[in-house]
Amino acid sequence: MPEEAERSQFTAAEIGAIAHLYRGEVYRSTIWRTRLDTTTNWAVVTLGIALSISFAAPGASPLPLVLVGVLIILFLVLEARRYRYFNVWRARCRWMEQNFYAPMLIEGDLHLEENWQEVLANDYLRPNYHISFFTAVGRRIRRNYLWILLIQSVAFIGKIVVHPVPLTTWDEVLERSSVGPLPGWIVLAAGALYVLSWTGIAIWSEIHDTRRARRRGHSGSSMG
């Protein structure tokens, strides 16, 4: 207890160490942020290639626009995994900014009595992801992939509508949508489920993050 009572402030050396720690966490978050951009770029490029192939000629097959969805899902999964790592470093940086730098700049006081430093120390002693995998997927869909998925879907519909000639009947929609032995209605139903599923995850993620932010605001003890 006497040692805890004496522990009222950081020394100059300890403040310098925390500053270097913050720089290291910023560097980590920057590296992982670059990796997020890489997977997004892969998704955009592969979709662009599929668009080029499918719209190269009126008789070109729309199948590449369907198959590219598998690659987009793969990139989304990879990016969600990377985002969970990025969120660890980002959360630590934000925690130090909020509890170390901001009070020091505003009041000249580090507010060690609030024990924010213990939260940070425990995160180093027992590192863990701050968000679930599905939350990460939802966030990446909201930020980037929902637009990619919508462009893919609109491009597929546009291909069916205009190539090789403009549509005149609903039967032509089903005929052009068919892929090998799969009838058109199954392909269209799978496409609708594809878009609605990712949209639903994005909406759920938004609601979940909003509730989580409110709980974090009330408790003041969570990070990430």
Rank of each mutant, 00 (worst) to 15 (best):
R28K: 10
T40G: 07
T199N: 09
L182N: 14
Y22D: 02
T210R: 14
E172R: 05
G108P: 00
Y194H: 15
L36E: 04
A102F: 13
S221W: 06
T168N: 00
M1C: 14
W95M: 04
G217Y: 14
A192H: 03
S222D: 10
A57L: 01
Y145S: 01
L74I: 10
P166R: 06
S197Q: 14
R214C: 03
F134W: 15
G24C: 03
R139Y: 10
V161F: 02
R215C: 09
A57M: 05
V44W: 01
A43S: 11
A102V: 11
P62S: 07
V179D: 14
Q9M: 11
I18T: 12
S221K: 10
L78F: 15
R81V: 01
V45L: 14
V70Q: 10
T199F: 00
R7G: 00
T40L: 11
L74D: 05
P181L: 12
S205W: 06
F10H: 13
L74M: 03
Y101H: 10
T135A: 11
F100I: 07
G200H: 02
V70C: 08
H163F: 08
H163E: 08
L193E: 12
L149Q: 01
Q152G: 07
N87K: 09
V137Y: 09
F75W: 08
G180P: 12
E79V: 00
W32D: 03
Q98P: 03
I160T: 04
L196M: 14
G220S: 05
T30W: 04
A155E: 06
H130Y: 07
R143A: 04
I15D: 12
W95V: 01
A213Y: 04
L125M: 10
T30M: 10
V45I: 15
V26S: 02
G180H: 13
V66M: 03
R81A: 10
S221Y: 02
F55H: 09
W95H: 06
G16N: 13
V44M: 12
W89H: 13
E118M: 08
L105I: 14
T135E: 14
I203E: 13
F86H: 06
Q117T: 05
D209P: 03
T38G: 07
L150M: 13
I207E: 13
I148G: 01
I131T: 07
D37S: 14
F55G: 06
I53W: 05
F100K: 00
S178I: 02
L76A: 07
A102D: 13
L74E: 05
A80I: 03
R94P: 04
W32I: 00
I31P: 00
I31A: 02
R214K: 14
R84A: 01
Q9T: 12
H218K: 15
Q9G: 12
L196I: 07
V68Y: 03
A5F: 14
G220V: 09
R33S: 10
G138K: 01
